[in-house]
Amino acid sequence: MSIFAQRSVFIRSFLKLASVNVLSNLMVPLAGLIDVMFLGHLTEIRHLAGVAIATILFNYIYWTFGFLRMGTTGMVAQAIGRKDNQSAVLISLQHGILALILGLAILIFQKPLQVLGFAILSATPEVKTSGVDFYNALIWGAPATLINFVLIGWFLGQTQSSKVLLLSAISNCANVLLDYLFIVQWGWSSRGAGLATATSQYLMLIVGTLLYCQTISFKQIQASIGEVFNLSALKSVFMLNGEIIIRTFALISTMAMFSNLSSMLGTEILATNTLLMQLVSLAAYFIDGLAFATESLAGIFQGSGNITSLKQLLLSFCSQ
């Protein structure tokens, strides 16, 4: 097979994986746009503005721990590349335990986080009241959200993006349906939006856990259980993903400054810019679908020592 033919086969394989990732990713901002639509049609726009400022706080709370997804994907992919399924299971369990601990810690400290966060954010008292209602409902989904990061990372690391697509469909469809029920039918406004999202995260967790259990055996869990609570291993997870945390924190801070400055210009401008940010998210999630495919394949090639394919992955599109 010629080099051109090999490259064509490689690109087709990459795009097949990436297309599923892109589709599953796009469901997230599309669901967000529908959330905005429901809240935007309420008689009082303060509910949409309140959700917008509370989302700034949740972006800090959740995406600071985005390494749970990215780190799991990379480390699992490398283990799969080495054909070391036992290590892959251990990595998923360690990250899962860490996600649970962090999620419970968020619940324990939810009140100080709320007070500090809304003290920093700029908004009218009415907007902040709606934001607090949203916060108080959504915060209970913290453990499920962080564990879902790990589940998504696990499936992406094994290039099982179809399962990620299924989980995204379940979570976001449930979110939209519950938004309609809680916001439109029951009139719970911003509190209903938060409760809908939290509930959909737990539904995603239940289905994701069932799918995860189908991919491993009890013997693998039994063999890994002694290493799961290894404190030095958990510490290494933080050390390994330190750069990811810094990068994510900087990105979130930039977006937070935009939203916070918008709120200082008035409730209507904040609501308008919230819609614009949803469109920006649509583009970002599209690009992330390609990035997820690259992460999965790069980890597998690195783990298997296939440097030729790794270079091809990095250079294929640049050399067209």
Rank of each mutant, 00 (worst) to 15 (best):
M1S: 12
I3V: 12
Q6E: 15
S8N: 07
N21T: 05
V22N: 02
L30C: 12
F38Y: 11
F38P: 01
G40Y: 00
E44S: 14
A54L: 08
T64D: 06
T73H: 06
M75S: 10
Q78A: 12
A79R: 02
A79H: 07
I80F: 03
I80P: 00
V89P: 00
V89L: 05
G96R: 00
L104A: 09
I106Y: 02
L116C: 14
F118V: 06
L121Y: 14
S122A: 15
P125C: 12
E126P: 12
D133G: 12
N136D: 13
G141Q: 10
T145V: 15
G153K: 01
S162C: 11
L166H: 05
S168N: 13
A169L: 14
S171A: 15
G187F: 02
R191F: 11
G192S: 07
G192Q: 05
A193T: 06
T197D: 01
A198K: 03
Q222G: 05
G226M: 06
L234I: 02
V237M: 12
G242A: 13
E243V: 13
I244Y: 07
F249L: 14
M257L: 10
L270M: 03
N273W: 08
N273P: 04
L279N: 09
F286T: 10
G289N: 08
A293P: 03
I300M: 15
G305I: 03
K311N: 13
Q320S: 10
